[in-house]
Every structure is written in structure tokens, then in C-alpha cells.
């Protein structure tokens, strides 16, 4: 199978800091891939390079056979790369529906047709279970619901690659259960790249795990392999074993 996304020698330096350092990465279509690592390991910077929020200092990014290294972010989104923000950034003053209608009206060639927009937007809200709150102001929603709205906005783009940056941060246990089911469902027609600190979520969802440390890939493998990897245990000071046990 050809990879959906590959990076070659990808680096990003902030002054003297090598936030992402010479990363070779490859993602198969249909995969759920988790990216883990200690704080400041360069995970968010790495996915920001992939979706075009930052320009790389060096290296190449190829998406679906096309070199996208120099492509502006909005065109990458149109190619099918969707990014949901780590810090919730829904449009607080607009309703939940309007938040989702924005990505929808761009993806539809017939975006002027109100009915088509409405149908797709409600569909995205239903998938995350927010349909009944469509007319509430986004900023007034509970935090967990705002996280889900963020995901719905990503889904509304009908992405081929959905990048979720710490989506379960701040969610309750029951919300996390629902979230795991949601990601599984999303993965039936999209590739998911998941940055996550919650090891339970990672172990349940990911088929493969990439571990970042100090801007480099420390290890990569199946959940079982990563659990057994001593270098990873050192980087994480045993947290993987505890959570995975």
C-alpha cells in the first residue's frame, strides 16, 4: 500500500531550539495512528508542519503522492487535511450550527443552496451528538461539548486525514468512552492522526504508535511493542506501564 502521508528529513527550528528534528514519518491510509511523547517533545509542532500552520526549516512533506511542503494551509485543507486545535478554538460568538456550516459551505460546490448546507452541517453535528444543541451559542456550551464541536468542524470538512490534537483533554471519563467510539467510527472512512496523553485512549484506539522525544522519533510500533520498549519507559518514567497494565 502507498502511504497517505510521508515526511522526509522534516525539521523546524525556533532559534536554537530544534522543536522538530529531521523526522522521517509515514502514515498508511485508513490507519489510526497515535503520537505520544512528553510535553515539549515536538508533537504539536510536527502536526502543525503537516497541516501548514508553520513552514518547515527543512525537509519535505508528501500527501497522497503530491509534494505539499510549500503549499499554504488553506489549500492543504482542500486536499483533505483537517486539523482540530489543541486549545479549543470554536467561534464562540456563533451558534454551534454556524460553526459547522462554515466548513460545510466551503466543501460543497453548491454552497449557496441552503438545504444542502443544512443537511451536511446537521449530519456532522449528529455524528458527535450535538444535533440537539445546534442553536446554542458555541461559547456557552460545556467544555466537553466545545471539544466535540471542534471535532465536528473537522468532520464537516470531509477530511481524508483528520489530525486530532489532544482531543480528550479536559473530558470526563464517560465523555472519553463516547469519544473512543466516535474516533473508531470516523476511522471507517478517514485516516486519523491522534496526539494524546491519555494512555487508555491511545492503547484502545491506535494500531500503531509513534513516540516523540526532543523533536525526534524515539520509537514506533504496535501498542504491545511500545509498551515493552524500555527507551519509551524511560522517557515516560513508567507511566506507559502503569496505564497499560
Amino acid at each position: 500500500m502507498t502511504a497517505l502521508l510521508t515526511t522526509k528529513g522534516l525539521s523546524r527550528h525556533f532559534g536554537g531550539l530544534r522543536a522538530v528534528d529531521n523526522v522521517d514519518f509515514s502514515l498508511e491510509p485508513g490507519e489510526i495512528r497515535a503520537v505520544i511523547g512528553p510535553n515539549g517533545a515536538g508533537k504539536t509542532t510536527f502536526v502543525s508542519l503537516v497541516c501548514g500552520r508553520y513552514a518547515p526549516s527543512s525537509g519535505r512533506i508528501v500527501f497522497d503522492g503530491e509534494d505539499i511542503t510549500d503549499m499554504p494551509a488553506h489549500l492543504r485543507v482542500r486536499r483533505g487535511i483537517a486539523y482540530t486545535f489543541q486549545i479549543t478554538s470554536v467561534f464562540a460568538n456563533l451558534s454551534a450550527y454556524e460553526n459547522v456550516a462554515l466548513p460545510v459551505q466551503r466543501t460543497l460546490t453548491d454552497g449557496r443552496s441552503r438545504r444542502a448546507v443544512r443537511q451536511s452541517a446537521m449530519e456532522a453535528l449528529e455524528r458527535v451528538g450535538l444535533a440537539s444543541r445546534a442553536h446554542e451559542q458555541a461559547g456557552a456550551l460545556a467544555y466537553g461539548h466545545q471539544r466535540l464541536l471542534e471535532v465536528a468542524m473537522g468532520l464537516a470538512l470531509k477530511p481524508r486525514l483528520l489530525i486530532l490534537d489532544e482531543p480528550t483533554q479536559g473530558l470526563s471519563d464517560s465523555e472519553i468512552e463516547n469519544f473512543i467510539a466516535l474516533v473508531r467510527e470516523i476511522a471507517s472512512d478517514a485516516t486519523v492522526l491522534l496526539i494524546e496523553h491519555n494512555m487508555q485512549v491511545v492503547m484502545e484506539l491506535a494500531r500503531r504508535i509513534t513516540v516523540f522525544d526532543a523533536g525526534k522519533i524515539l520509537a514506533e510500533g504496535s501498542p504491545a511493542e511500545i509498551r515493552a520498549n524500555t527507551a519509551v519507559q524511560e522517557a515516560y518514567l513508567g507511566t506507559v506501564q502503569e496505564a497499560g497494565a
Binding site: H74, R78, S89, P103, R106, L157
Partner: peptide
């Protein structure tokens, strides 16, 4: 920033 990441 968010609008850009919706493909606009």
C-alpha cells in the same frame, strides 16, 4: 487562524 484551517 481557525478560518484558515477550515480551508478558507
Amino acid at each position: 487562524e481557525r478560518t484558515k484551517m477550515l480551508g478558507y
